[in-house]
Nucleic acid binder design. Structure first.
Length: 994
DNA sequence: ACGTACACCTA
DNA sequence: GTAGGTGTACGTC
C-alpha cells in the first residue's frame, strides 16, 4: 500500500445486525432459510464495488476488507466481565446469516478478516491507523458511533444504508464534539447496550457541554468541583472511580496483532462465476441477473454453489412440547369459555377445579416458550389466509388485533390485522401458537400520485373485510382482543360486528385493578416477562412519526403478529383466574357487555355548535385582554401571567406580599387558594389573576380546543371512554374529555350551551341524586341516612341537624354548607387536614367536627374501620357488586403513604359501587328503550349522569323509561336499603337539560 | 421531543 | 380528604 491508495473497511458484524433489523425479513423460497441480511449485504457490496469501477463518481478503493467479530470472548470481557453481559442471544433468524455473510464475502473475492480476542472495531481501528500512517485514505463502511473516534481528515465513514458520509463535521453535528473527543464522550455517557458504565444522568448532550467547557475528560475530572449543577457534579464525582474503566472499554485498540498485512488487502478482480454461483444458491434472482450481466457470465450454465449452512432447518423456536416445561405445569383443566355468556354460572365448580397453581403453571409453560418473531407469517393472498382461518376454526378461538392509521378509532382506517391461534384447544399450555399479519392497506413510502401507491401483494381490502366479517361475526369462534372496544368500533365503521369476544385488558382490570396498568405492554412485562416491540420503534415518534400504512410490511408483521401472540398468551394466563378468583360475574356483567354500549356511544358522538364556541372564545379573549392590561398596570411591568414562576416572583418577590406558601418543589405557590387569601387581605392584583385564569382556562381548554374535535365527516364530537383507566371502576373520558365540561360558574356553564341536539331533537340529561351517599348509607347500614333517603329529606340539612342540633326547617345555609363538606369528606376518606382546607377553618376545629360526626353516626366510623381492616388483611376492598380494588401499598411503613391508601380504600367501594350501578344502567338502557320503541340514543356518561338525544316528541316517553332503568339498576343483584333517585330533564342544549 | 410541575375543570 | 384529563410553562435530553 502506498500514499494515495484508498482502503475500504466494511464493518461486517455491524452491518449484519443493522441490516437484519432494518431490512425486510426475507427467506429463501425453497427452504425458508432467513437471508434478509445476506441480501442486504450482497446488494451493498455490489453497489460499493460497481460504484468503485465508475471512476467518475465518488472514491475508488484500491484495498478492501470485510471485518467481523470473532466471538464474544474479547479482551474487554477479560478486564470487565459485565461487558456486553446484557446482550441477548442473536435472534434465531439471524444466526445462520453470520456464516452466510462470510461466505458472501469470499464469493465477492474479498478478504474476510477476524481475530480471536478482538472485536471487529479494533481490527478496523488498527488497519485504519496503519493505512493513515502510510498516507492512504480510509473509508469505514459503518454507521456505528463506536467507530467515530477513528475519523480524521483522512479517515471517513460511510453509512451505506442511508448513503451518507460521516466525516468530522457530521460527527460534530451529531455528537457535539469532534471525533478525537468521542472516547471521552462515550466514557461519560457509557453504553447501556454494551453495559459500559458511565455517569448516570449524563447523556450525550450534557457530556458534550462538559467537554466543551473543560476540554477533555482528565481536565473535567480534575476540576469536577467547578461544575455548577449540584446533581451533575455529584454524579461525576461519584463515577470518578469507574470512568477509567469506561474509557478503556470504549477506546479502540490500534495495535491488534492483525495477521493479514495491509498489502494483502488489495482489491482483486471480481470472480464472476463464483459470485453468480453463490447468489444463485441464495436465490437472489434479480441481483444474480445483474451480476451475471455485468460480469458477462452465462446465468443458465452456472450451478448454484454449495453453501454450508448452520441452521436447524426449523422455522420456529424451542420445542413447544418440551417435557421439562410440561412437568413444571400444573394439571390442566379445560376452561369452558368457548361460548361467551356461559361462564357466570360456573363459578363454584370452576373455582374448585382451578387451583391457584393453574395460572402459575401456564405462566411457567408460556415462559418456557419465548415469543419468537421468526415464526410469524405475513399473509398476502386469500389462499394463505384461508389456511390460517381453517386452523382458527378448528381451535375455535383466535386473538385478533387491528393495525390502523390512527389511535382514534373514529378516524382510523384499517391497514392490516393480525391473528394468533393455538393448535391444541384441550391443552392450550402445550399447543403451538401460530400468529400472522395480514397487510391490506400498506402504502409505498414514495407516495404515488395515482391510487395512493398501495404496496403490491396485499389481499384486496374488500376481500379481507369479507373474510373478517365471516370470522368476527361467527358466534362459535371466540375472538380475543386487548382493548377490543377500539377494534370493535373500527369494525363497526366497516359494517362488521364483533360477536363472541374476550378482552384481556378488561380481564386484567377485573382481576387486578390497583395493581398497575392494564395496557398490553405492561401486562406482557408483568406476566410474560417479555417486552413487545414498541410502537414508536416501528412507526417512529414525534416529527419522524409515520402512520402505520407507511411501515414496512416485514416490520409491521413482527409488531402486529406479536401483539396478537402476546394477547393470546395473556388470555391463556388471565382468563382462568376469573373463575378461580370468583370474578367471572364482575367481568361478565359489568365489563364485557359495556364494550358494545360504549362503542356505540363513541360512534354517535354529540353535536357541538361551532358558532357558539367561536363567539364565546372571542368574548373570553376580549375580557382576558382587558384584565391583562389591568394586571400589567398593577404589577408595574409586563410578564407572562400564565407562568406561575414569573407570577410568584412578581407577587412575593417584587411586590413582597405576605402569606406566601411554597409548593413541594420550593416554588412560590400561586394557587387559587393563595390568591383568594391575598384578595381577601385587600390586594387588587390577585383577584385579577384569578379572573384571568378562569377566562383563559375556559378559552384554551374548551372554546378553542373543542372545535378541533369536530369530526370532519360526522360533524360531531366523539369522545373516547377508557374502561380500565381508573382504579375504582369509573370510566375516563378523553380526546376530548367530556366529563369535565364546566358547570360550577355561570361563565363556565355557557360552554354547555354549545352542546346541542340535532334539529327536531332534544338532549335528555338524567343524573343520580346523591348516589355515593346512598351507596354509603346502604353499605354501612346507617339508620338515620337510610331513613332520610327513604323520606326524601335534604341529606346535608339532615346531617347538619344531627350534628349541630339545628332543625332541618330553616337551616342556615352556612351550617348546611359545612355539613355538606363533611359528607363529601366522609366519602373521600376524611381527614382533619383536608376538611380544614376545604372549609377554611382550623385543623382542630375540623377535628372536632369529625369527632362529632362519628358520635352521631357510629356506623360510619365502624364501616370505615372495617374497610381499612379488610384492605390491610386482603390487600383489596370490594364494591357491593364484588368488583375488587387492590391497594398493594396499604401496609406501607411510610405513614403518609399508608394514610393515603387508607383514604383511597375507604372511597373506592363507595365510588366504585356507584360506578357499577351506572354501568349496569347503561348496559340495560338500550334494550329497555328499544323494547319501549323509544328512539333515544345514549350519548354521554359523566359518572352519575347519562345524556341522551331523542326526537322532541319522544322525550316525554323516554324520561320515565330512562329513570326506571337507572333507579333499578342495582336490582336484582343487590336490593338496596335506600332508593336510588334520578333527576331528568330535556332541553335544546346540555346547560338547560342539566 | 419529552417529562414534570402546576393549575384547574369535572363527579 | 377520592377519582380523573388537559393546557401551559419549563427544564431536560
Amino acid at each position: 500500500m502506498k500514499k494515495g491508495d484508498h482502503l475500504f473497511l466494511v464493518d461486517g458484524s455491524g452491518f449484519i445486525f443493522r441490516a437484519f433489523h432494518a431490512l425486510p425479513a426475507l427467506t429463501r423460497k425453497s427452504d425458508k432459510l432467513p437471508v434478509g441480511a445476506v441480501a442486504g449485504f450482497c446488494n451493498m457490496l455490489w453497489k460499493l464495488l460497481t460504484d468503485a469501477r465508475d471512476t467518475s463518481v465518488g472514491v475508488t478503493p484500491t484495498h478492501f476488507a470485510v471485518i467481523f467479530d470473532y466471538s464474544s470472548k474479547t479482551f474487554r470481557k477479560e478486564i470487565y466481565p459485565d461487558y456486553k453481559a446484557n446482550r441477548q442471544a442473536p435472534p434465531e433468524d439471524l444466526v445462520p446469516q453470520f456464516g452466510l455473510i462470510r461466505e458472501a464475502t469470499r464469493a465477492f473475492n474479498l478478504p474476510c478478516i477476524e481475530l480471536e480476542g478482538y472485536e471487529a472495531d479494533d481490527i478496523i481501528a488498527t488497519y485504519a491507523r496503519q493505512a493513515e500512517a502510510i498516507g492512504a485514505d480510509v473509508t469505514i463502511i459503518s454507521s456505528d458511533k463506536d467507530l467515530m473516534q477513528l475519523v480524521t481528515p483522512n479517515v471517513h465513514m460511510y453509512d451505506s444504508m442511508k448513503d451518507k458520509q460521516i466525516s468530522i463535521p457530521e460527527v460534530i453535528e451529531k455528537w457535539g464534539v469532534p471525533p478525537e473527543k468521542m472516547i471521552d464522550l462515550q466514557s461519560l455517557t457509557g453504553d447501556s447496550t454494551d453495559n459500559v458504565p458511565g455517569v448516570p444522568g449524563i447523556g450525550p448532550k450534557t457530556a458534550a457541554t462538559l467537554l466543551e467547557q473543560f476540554g477533555d475528560l482528565d481536565t473535567l475530572l480534575a476540576r469536577a468541583h467547578e461544575i455548577k449543577q449540584d446533581k451533575r457534579r455529584e454524579s461525576i464525582l461519584a463515577a470518578r472511580e469507574i470512568l477509567p474503566l469506561s474509557k478503556m472499554l470504549v477506546t479502540l485498540k490500534t495495535d491488534t496483532p492483525v495477521g493479514v498485512p495491509l498489502g494483502d488487502l488489495e482489491l482483486k478482480p471480481q470472480d464472476g462465476p463464483r459470485l453468480v454461483a453463490f447468489l444463485k444458491a441464495m436465490e437472489f434472482t434479480s441481483l444474480t441477473r445483474r451480476v451475471a450481466e455485468v460480469c458477462g457470465c452465462d446465468l443458465a450454465s452456472i450451478e448454484p454453489a454449495e453453501v454450508p449452512i448452520e441452521w436447524n432447518g426449523k422455522a420456529h423456536g424451542p420445542d413447544l412440547d418440551d417435557p421439562a416445561a410440561e412437568a413444571k405445569a400444573a394439571p390442566v383443566t379445560t376452561p369452558k369459555e368457548k361460548s361467551p355468556g356461559n361462564g357466570a354460572g360456573e363459578i363454584g365448580q370452576d373455582a374448585a377445579h382451578l387451583p391457584k397453581a393453574f395460572a402459575e403453571g401456564r405462566a411457567a409453560a408460556l415462559a418456557a416458550r419465548p415469543v419468537d418473531h421468526s415464526t410469524y407469517e405475513t399473509i398476502r393472498d386469500p389462499a394463505h389466509l384461508n389456511r390460517f382461518l381453517t386452523l382458527v376454526r378448528e381451535t375455535g378461538l383466535v386473538a385478533f388485533d387491528t393495525e390502523t392509521t390512527s389511535l382514534d378509532a373514529m378516524q382510523a382506517e384499517l391497514v392490516g390485522f393480525s391473528l394468533a391461534t393455538i393448535d391444541n384447544r384441550t391443552d392450550p399450555s402445550s399447543g403451538t401458537i401460530s400468529a400472522c399479519y395480514v397487510p391490506v392497506g400498506h402504502k409505498s413510502g414514495t407516495g404515488d400520485l395515482l391510487g395512493g401507491g398501495l404496496v403490491e401483494n396485499q389481499i384486496p381490502i374488500k376481500d379481507a373485510l369479507a373474510a373478517l366479517k365471516d370470522l368476527l361475526e361467527d358466534e362459535t369462534i371466540l375472538k380475543i382482543g386487548q382493548n377490543l372496544k377500539y377494534d370493535a368500533l373500527l369494525m363497526r365503521r366497516y359494517g362488521i360486528a364483533v360477536r363472541a369476544f374476550d378482552d384481556t385488558m378488561l380481564i386484567s382490570y377485573v382481576l387486578d385493578a390497583g395493581n398497575g396498568t392494564h395496557g398490553m405492554d405492561s401486562l406482557s412485562e408483568r406476566w410474560l416477562g417479555h417486552t413487545p416491540i414498541a410502537f414508536k420503534d416501528v412507526a417512529g415518534s414525534g416529527k419522524g412519526a409515520v402512520s402505520f400504512d407507511q411501515v414496512d410490511i416485514a416490520r409491521a408483521t413482527a409488531y402486529a403478529a406479536e401483539d396478537a401472540d402476546v394477547t393470546l398468551r395473556l388470555w391463556l394466563l388471565l382468563k382462568p383466574r376469573l373463575a378461580a378468583e370468583g370474578l367471572m360475574r364482575v367481568y361478565e356483567r359489568l365489563e364485557r357487555p359495556l364494550v358494545d354500549v360504549l362503542a356505540r356511544m363513541e360512534e354517535r358522538g354529540i353535536s357541538v355548535d361551532r358558532q357558539i364556541l367561536s363567539r364565546l372564545s372571542g368574548e373570553l379573549a376580549q375580557s382576558a385582554a382587558r384584565i391583562e392590561d389591568e394586571i400589567y398596570e398593577l404589577a408595574g411591568e409586563r410578564f407572562n401571567i400564565g407562568s406561575p414562576k414569573q407570577l410568584g416572583d412578581i407577587l412575593f418577590g417584587k411586590m413582597g406580599l405576605s402569606g406566601a406558601t411554597k409548593t413541594k418543589t420550593g416554588q412560590w405557590s400561586t394557587s387559587a387558594q393563595v390568591l383568594e387569601d391575598l384578595a381577601a387581605a385587600g390586594e387588587p392584583l390577585p383577584r385579577r389573576i384569578v379572573d384571568w385564569r378562569q377566562l383563559t382556562k375556559l378559552k384554551s381548554t374548551y372554546t378553542d380546543a373543542l372545535p378541533g374535535y369536530i369530526h370532519p365527516q360526522t360533524k360531531r364530537v366523539h369522545t373516547s371512554y377508557a374502561m380500565a383507566a381508573t382504579t375504582t371502576g369509573r370510566l375516563a373520558s378523553s380526546e376530548p374529555n367530556l366529563q369535565n365540561i364546566p358547570v360550577r360558574t355561570a361563565e363556565g356553564r355557557k360552554i354547555r350551551t354549545a352542546f346541542i341536539a340535532e334539529p327536531g331533537n332534544l338532549l335528555v340529561s338524567a343524573d343520580y341524586s346523591q348516589i355515593e351517599l346512598r351507596v354509603l348509607a346502604h353499605a354501612a347500614e346507617i339508620p338515620q341516612l337510610v331513613q332520610a333517603f327513604a323520606d326524601g329529606i335534604d341529606i346535608h340539612a339532615m346531617t347538619a341537624s344531627e350534628m349541630f342540633g339545628v332543625p332541618v326547617e330553616g337551616m342556615p345555609s352556612d351550617i348546611r354548607r359545612r355539613a355538606k363538606a363533611i359528607n363529601f369528606g366522609i366519602i373521600y376518606g376524611i381527614s382533619a387536614f383536608g376538611l380544614a382546607n376545604q372549609l377554611g377553618i382550623e385543623r382542630s376545629e375540623a377535628g372536632d367536627y369529625i369527632k362529632r360526626y362519628f358520635e352521631r353516626f357510629p356506623g360510619i366510623k365502624a364501616y370505615m374501620e372495617e374497610t381499612k381492616a379488610k384492605a390491610r388483611d386482603l390487600g383489596y376492598v370490594e364494591t357491593i357488586f364484588g368488583r375488587r380494588i387492590h391497594y398493594p401499598e396499604i401496609r406501607s411503613s411510610n405513614p403518609s403513604v399508608r394514610a393515603f391508601n387508607e383514604r383511597a380504600a375507604i372511597n373506592a367501594p363507595i365510588q366504585g359501587s356507584a360506578a357499577d350501578v351506572i354501568r349496569r344502567a347503561m348496559i340495560r338502557m338500550e334494550p329497555a328503550l328499544e323494547e319501549n320503541r323509544i328512539n333515544a340514543r345514549m350519548l354521554l356518561q359523566v359518572h352519575d349522569e347519562l345524556i341522551f338525544e331523542a326526537p322532541e316528541a319522544e322525550c316525554e316517553k323516554a324520561i320515565p323509561v330512562i329513570r326506571q332503568v337507572m333507579e333499578h339498576a342495582a336490582m336484582p343483584a343487590i336490593s338496596m336499603k335506600v332508593p336510588l333517585a334520578v333527576d331528568a330533564r330535556a332541553a335544546k342544549n346540555w346547560d338547560e337539560a342539566h
